[in-house]
Amino acid sequence: MATVLADTKHVAMADFKGKVDPDWCPGCGDFGVLAAVQKALVDLQIPNHNVVTISGIGCSSNFPGFINTYGMHTLHGRALAVATGLKLANHELTVLVTGGDGDGFGIGGNHFVHSMRRNVDLLYIVMDNQIYGLTTGQTSPTSRIGMKTKSMPFGNIEAPVNPISLALAAGATFVARGFSAEQKHLTELIKQGIQHKGFSFLDVFSPCVTYNLDNTYQWFRPRVKKLEDDPVHDPTDWMAAMGKSLLWGDEIPIGKFFERTDLPTLHGAEPVLNAGPLLHGDSRIPPDVARSFVEELT
């Protein structure tokens, strides 16, 4: 995500305080993600009116209501499509897309894959709790095999999607994973994701304390290992990143898996935007151009 130059006014934490407090369950991992996003925006000094937070539907998709930026709380699974249109119409805006694993990898799976191959310049944060929360606890696309939920009471028999491998395969140019209990680390990843020019994917372990009793804070804490602490990890090496993405079990990597900066963003590759954002363009077709359109038909 490209950064909009900060206005002269100092941007403070209070600027991003939402009109209402989050109504997530006490202990929900999403609180940590919200705090980290607010902190990252302050650190980067991006004024709130230049930020658009766009979500789908679900617990974590209530996010735009809890932060003071421009927001769009759209349809289930459609946030990335909406965000793509918005970014192309005004690429000077910083676009954050927030949502959950069901929203992004289930109902929104198609847009997820295509947004990555397009290299749309935005940061997509998935608060991944491996469960459907707002519908009171059903299996999600990232639920592990064997997990018992209301929709699969005898245990899930479907293999979960691996969001990191999928993002790498689909061509995301920034791929990272965070843990909502690792605030400083998460804030750093969000800042990098915002600054990256292109599609930044950030999968965040954000435990659901009400419906997912398998993947809890206690479960994650001993397992997560920061890639930044691995002296041989090279985030420019796609093959190595793919290898790391497959690790799951006693050791689960978090941090930046992969980043490449040599590819144009979607808006950067489109000559129509050379003159600046569409929003600022003249809405009238110049008379000589209009005449040429009609002449083609005579």
């Binding site: 499509a81 909406v82 249109g85 918005l86 192309l88 119409a89 847009h111």
Partner: peptide
């Protein structure tokens, strides 16, 4: 589905879509 949502996203930014 992507079409209409993308069009609405652009419209929301302020252009005719």
């Amino acid at each position: 589905i992507g079409v209409v949502n993308m069009a609405i996203g652009a419209a929301h930014a302020g252009v005719r879509s």
